[in-house]
Write a protein that binds this DNA or RNA. Structure first.
Lengths: 335, 335
DNA sequence: CTGAAAGCGCTTACAG
DNA sequence: CTGAAAGCGCTTACAG
């Protein structure tokens, strides 16, 4: 691999001159620059970004820490994150944490070692060590779909899960439902907790007593939704509607209902949260709460770029609005 | 940020000694090593991976070039690629090409600049420039779901799309179908072409004349499948079965059929390819051809690791088997 | 506008 | 087992 020295030798100039030509420095004669550029092609010279990063203290890489790229939510965000970052000349290094604390920590260590310029993170378990690592970073950090822990002055971009849940509940109330079940995501899940909070508060705001048997926590998959629906039907027979904390859960519930010949929305109303692509399938048409998921990735990346540009470690968070999507799985409560 | 110098000063030893302690070099006293490790924690020293890479000529990063992380296929593979690579101490840099030639090339340039140790690629447009770049790399490359172009001695890992398509067709034949339509992916698509080849060859092997009106090329989405189904019904009325080149297309076809009250499989059989998660939904139950998609990512990463370990630029390709998944969208042809 | 020199933070023969 | 020195491939004041 030819280096800048080879290029300088080829032209009989100094490496400083070559460097200046390559980095379009103002102090360089146009002609010289042209010659350098041509010779560069001729000898197939490619600058070594590692060496450049070392001296410039800027690696032009951004770290992206997500729970699981396989989740359509995160892949959508990862797509847009990569798109805006690569348009800005950055490379993105991505890590799946699989929601494991050790992998979260390992990622943060890599960030330090590789001198990444900024990171976008979606941590599920941030303990003291993690927080300390985050503080030592001294680079822009934006939280995506998570809130920064107390004491860390870092922005986040997310959707208002609480408000979205309230909107879903209000819609159910407007149809006359009073006995509403809840299928939750894992208890540690931040988004799951927020949505649950919306469910409970909505009930209480209306003076309705939440039925302790009306809430089930299982996992986040379709199978969990199906299983939960079965249990709910047994333990909460008065129920006329179900709020599933995410669409996968909601679709699982629909599956269970279809398999047991319970008509939707005739006998049971179901509403989800996320607005996955599948939810709009001809056979499903799940009413749900949509989140601008591509926009979130984009916003997070843009926010990070702005912080990098302004050389600031903090900025204003962005809370995006959800949108109630009314399809065909909810109807008036039978009286 | 403390450097190795600070650490050496802290302990009153030379940087060479510190370096040896950190890289568990054999020539080091256990005691010294312990002290270094402790001091490292004390002063919060993190090695600079950039400097290390520069001198070791090994960046411990692997590039992953994929068309679109949003595609469940690629996100599944990306997940496993990241998993095995990070278990081996590598970081993965990922780029979506969006099936754009310029982005493919830009990625390859980055690989050169960042001195990546190896790459896993899924190119859609590899022209001369691209091939030349690939040759200049001199690092292990594995093709994922694509074949290396003529003259490049590089391994691939993929599924036998052709054979999978033949199996799907054989299944249709075994049910008595003779008039079979084909909904294709975009014409430039490698996997699409292979599956089409399986379709055509299967027909001809049985002495059946392919009906030119029986083949439609549109896009790769559900909407395309739906639209294509409509056109096929119009132009090829004798058709009793459809082979959709991917599940999304197949599900789109099912949607169109459901919307037009044509019963499946009673009046029309449909088979797909991919075995997406949605295809197994209660309402869909699409018969299809499954590919071990997670395994592919894993295999590709393992192959790459092996090449890195053996210090070889080539290796044997891996062609995985598909599996016919019979569900509920195909039945005997009406006579 | 150009060049010589120092330095980014490491590793690795080489000598002891 | 340890240290001094050279060097990885660049950039950037500094001097001219």
């Amino acid at each position: 691999m030819p280096t800048i020295k080879d290029l300088a030798k080829e032209l009989g100039v100094s490496v400083s001159t070559v460097s200046r030509a390559l980095n379009n420095h103002p102090d360089i004669r146009q002609e010289t620059k042209q010659e350098v550029l041509e010779a560069m092609k001729r000898i197939n010279y490619t600058p070594n970004a590692l060496a450049r990063s070392l001296i410039q203290r800027k690696s032009n890489t951004i770290g992206l820490m997500i729970p699981d790229i396989t989740d359509p939510f995160f892949s959508a965000m990862a797509h847009d994150v990569e798109e805006v970052l690569s348009d800005n000349g950055y490379l993105v290094i991505y890590v799946n944490t699989s929601r494991r604390p050790d992998k979260e920590k390992r990622f943060l260590t890599s960030v330090l070692e590789r001198k990444m310029d900024g990171i976008i993170v979606t941590p599920d378990f941030l303990d003291e060590d993690g927080i300390e690592l985050l503080q030592r970073l001294k680079i822009p950090v934006v939280f995506l779909r998570r809130r920064p822990p107390q004491g860390l002055e870092m922005p986040f971009v997310d959707v208002d899960h609480y408000e979205g849940a309230c909107n879903a509940m209000d819609y159910l109330f407007s149809l006359g439902h009073k006995e509403i079940g809840f299928i939750g995501m894992p208890q540690y899940s931040f988004t799951g907790k927020e949505r649950y909070r919306g469910y409970i508060d909505s009930l209480q705001k209306r003076g309705l007593e939440p039925n302790p048997k009306g809430v089930i926590w299982d996992g986040r998959t379709m199978e969990c939704g199906s299983r939960s629906m079965g249990r709910l039907m047994e333990e909460y027979p008065a129920m006329t509607a179900v709020f599933a904390a995410n669409d996968l859960l909601g679709i699982g519930a629909l599956e269970w209902l279809a398999a047991h010949d319970i008509s939707v929305p005739g006998q049971m109303s179901v509403i989800g949260f996320d607005n996955l692509e599948v939810s709009n399938l001809h056979w499903i048409k799940l009413s749900t709460v949509a989140q601008p998921r591509k926009e979130m990735g984009r916003k997070a990346a843009e926010l990070l770029m702005q912080m990098l540009l302004d050389n600031r470690l903090t900025a204003d968070s962005i809370l995006l609005n959800t949108q109630l999507i009314i399809r065909q799985t909810c109807s008036e409560a039978k009286i």
